[in-house]
């Protein structure tokens, strides 16, 4: 048995993601103004907020995209300093960002992309790499479970994909890479109800004591399908309110202005 380079899945209830006093700037403008957040293992948390509140910035800072300057605070992922890691190291450690706008990669075949990603993560975890045949077998199972046509493997990554196909391709990647923490950045935007169900099923299928998710969304709709353990409201770069799933419904009815008034 290959030795794993890291600890096994954390027990339910242990803190998987811990954000303390996180502040960050984009092009000299402060967007995150002191975020405090804890996501225990096995829980799904939603972050809701109006446009411009810092939702996408938070997801990019957590996944290590360039162009965001972290000016203060700390983030640990299963006890390890997340902000010190390269994006590929974060992915190998089990963090997955489902992009709001998945990037098109003309000339890169989807199958090659998925296999390269899966093998890179497997290698980093000390697991054996899969050859083309082994990969195809695994990929087919996932495609079937997500009701995605096999044809999608043959196309360029996200090239000419509809909005729904792109999001499904994100969920397919997530299913293959089997992350510990998934960050879904407005995955519901641009999805019709059928696609929304498929995407939600993909996330719900991963639900386990060692899996957590941070579901970032503007609307309550997605949370009918992925029922969160907690809902946080992000406004003006801070978490201004935290509650249970009922908070999402409340926001849907009375809007963000009511929270602002209360905060």
């Amino acid at each position: 048995m290959p030795r794993r380079s890291e600890t096994a899945a954390p027990d339910k209830g242990m803190v998987m993601l811990k954000i303390e006093g996180l502040t960050a700037e984009v092009e000299g403008k402060q967007i995150l103004k002191g975020i405090d957040l804890e996501v225990p293992a096995g829980e799904i948390h939603a972050i809701m907020g109006p446009n411009g509140s810092g939702k996408s910035t938070l997801s990019y800072v957590l996944s290590g995209r360039e162009g965001y300057e972290i000016t203060g605070g700390a983030v640990t992922f299963n006890g390890v300093d997340l902000l010190a890691m390269e994006p590929e190291e974060r992915a190998a450690a089990g963090l997955f960002l489902a992009f709001q706008y998945p990037v098109e990669l003309p000339g890169v075949g989807n199958a090659l992309f998925l296999r390269t990603a899966l093998n890179a993560v497997r290698k980093a975890r000390g697991e054996p790499e899969l050859d083309a045949m082994q990969f195809l077998k695994v990929a087919r199972e996932r495609l079937k479970a997500l009701h995605i046509s096999e044809d999608m493997l043959k196309r360029g990554v996200n090239v000419g994909f509809s909005g729904g196909e792109k999001k499904r391709n994100e969920v397919l990647q997530m299913a293959l890479l089997a992350p510990k923490l998934a960050i879904l950045d407005e995955t519901d935007s641009g999805l019709d109800i059928d696609a929304l169900k498929i995407v939600s099923e993909g996330v719900n299928a991963l639900r386990a004591p060692g899996f957590s998710a941070l579901v970032i969304t503007h609307y309550q709709r997605l949370l009918d399908y992925i029922v969160p353990d907690k809902v946080h409201v992000l406004m003006g770069g801070r978490i201004v309110q935290t509650g249970g799933p009922e908070l999402a419904k409340q926001l849907e009815e009375s809007g963000y202005a009511s929270v602002q008034a209360a905060a």
Partner: peptide, 11 residues
């Protein structure tokens, strides 16, 4: 594009 690939674990 580079970030997208790296975010999927590709060095």
């Amino acid at each position: 594009q580079l970030f997208y690939l790296r975010a999927r674990g590709i060095p």
